[in-house]
Write a protein that binds this DNA or RNA. Structure first.
Length: 421
RNA sequence: GCCCGAGUAGUGUAGCUUGGUAACAUAUAGGACUGUGGAUCCUCUGUGCCGGGUUCAAAUCCCGGCUCGGGCCCCA
């Protein structure tokens, strides 16, 4: 038997119903914040992705040569393609530019729960502003999207990469060592970090202070720790501004400062944030984003950029884990021709109702009334329309309310009105 | 790419240790119900991931592959 490729999935109607629901809710929220949709190709030149991450990235993506010998790759994420498009076509667009997207992405990873080789991302890019209110609105948007799809329990963490750099400077840690330490910080492996710092001749006292600052949500403590470092001070002041806006103006109850947020990316600079769903366990991160610099790397004129991406599949998984009840697709009318002779009339009634914009299905298996009504119930039909010889003679139909079981005789012309009430 | 575990009707499971005709529930289709639904009963259809080995005989034991899941690596 031919089977589906590793790490990919089919989505049957029941699953697509949930996915579309999710996408529509997300889209409505993006639009509510003034964002416009953008779509880029499924594959790009390989160079677009190696430019910022180096050749080592090739191990993790699907790349190939086309028949003209071009080196191409299936997109592993959407920020780089969107920025490429911005440089090609949107540099002169009025600022700030707000772009959102949905798209499938591909990574050559080992699949696990919540991790697939083809997965979907929802995300956005905000180009041309980096005021605290712009950053606060961006973070609020990410948070609001996840809340609006119905998630109950999510955690928002906000950090700043300039600050953590300042912390490393303070300890005089070299870039080579820093890289190893960042791995521990990223994974919150503080005991390993502790040993690593100690073995790099950092005193016990300094190590403890460093570890405390990484984990504390207290901005004053952090401010105090990097006292005298001008850049860090500026960034922390901005961060305080963003936090205040999130709490007061955007009404987000519990944004947390976590200076230990690292993000795996090289191109983030200042603000970084993550949103996770604790219910998901190991693969709990739902969203990541921040302030970054890609436009100039790709040859465009420098401009402030920030954005985030939401793991669409994980967001859905989190909702399901929280036992969210998704809206069920329902049918307005299911038509039951009682005998073969009434099939033409049934079809014609179906056409008329469909032309009115109703969703209509009818028995195509020539089943009995009992089985047909059972099928109609399984499709969550709101009404059944029964057409037998009696009804046909009178030019009427029997309208059955599937919710309460009540029945009445109804002229075809009055059906639409009856169903809409 | 590495280590570990699992794969039996569409779905969920039993049988595997100790090899001997593959079962149950549910879902689908038909019928009981000659014109009224989520109930009940009956009937049909449908199953050993793939390939090899051992054996008179393999769902069961062995090897390889594939897929899924847990842990590494990675997560731009």
């Amino acid at each position: 038997m031919v089977q589906i490729p590793r790490g990919t999935r089919d989505f049957v109607p029941e699953e697509m119903q949930k996915r579309r629901y999710l996408q529509q809710r997300m889209e409505a929220t993006f639009r509510g914040y003034g964002y416009g949709e953008i779509q880029t190709p499924t594959f790009e030149t390989l160079e677009l992705f190696t430019a910022k991450s180096g050749a080592s990235i090739i191990d993790e993506l699907y790349n190939f040569k086309d028949k003209g010998g071009r080196e191409l790759a299936l997109r592993p994420e959407l920020t780089a393609p969107v920025i490429r498009c911005y440089i090609e076509r949107l540099q002169m667009a009025p600022k700030p530019l707000k772009l959102f997207y949905f798209g499938n992405c591909f990574r050559y990873d080992r699949p696990q729960k919540g991790r697939y080789r083809e997965f979907w991302q929802a995300g956005c890019e905000l180009i041309g502003t980096d005021t605290p209110e712009a950053h606060a609105e961006l973070v609020a948007l990410a948070y609001t999207i996840l809340k609006n799809i119905g998630l109950q329990n999510i955690v928002l963490n906000i950090g700043n990469l300039h600050v953590i750099s300042a912390m490393f400077e303070k300890l005089r840690i070299t870039d080579a060592v820093k890289k190893d330490l960042l791995t521990f910080i990223d994974k919150s492996q503080y005991e390993d970090l502790n040993s690593a710092l100690r073995s790099n001749d950092i005193s016990q006292q300094d190590t403890e202070a460093f570890l405390e600052i990484l984990q504390t949500p207290d901005l004053d403590k952090i401010m105090n720790y990097v006292h005298g470092h001008e850049r860090a001070h500026t960034e922390l002041t901005r961060l305080r501004g963003v936090m205040d806006l999130l709490k007061t103006s955007f009404g987000i109850p519990d944004p947390r400062v976590k200076i230990g947020i690292v993000r795996g990316l090289d191109y983030y600079k200042g603000l970084v944030f993550e949103i996770e769903a604790p219910v998901l366990g190991a693969e709990k991160q739902l969203c990541g984003g921040g302030d970054y610099e890609l436009v100039s790397l790709f040859g465009g004129t420098q401009v402030p950029q920030a954005g985030f991406a939401i793991g669409f599949d994980r967001a859905l998984l989190a909702l399901e884990t929280e036992q969210f009840t998704f809206p069920q697709p329902s049918l307005d009318v299911f038509i039951v021709p009682v005998t073969e002779t009434t099939i033409p009339m049934a079809l014609s009634v179906a056409s008329q109702l469909r032309a009115q914009g109703l969703t209509v299905d009818l028995d195509l298996l020539r089943r009995g009334i009992g089985k047909s009504l059972k099928y109609a119930a399984a499709q969550h039909a709101r009404f059944a329309v029964i057409i037998g010889p009696k009804e046909q003679e009178e030019g009427k139909v029997t309208l059955r309310n599937m919710i309460d079981g009540s029945q009445s005789s109804c002229a075809v012309a009055d059906l639409t009105a009856a169903v809409f009430t």
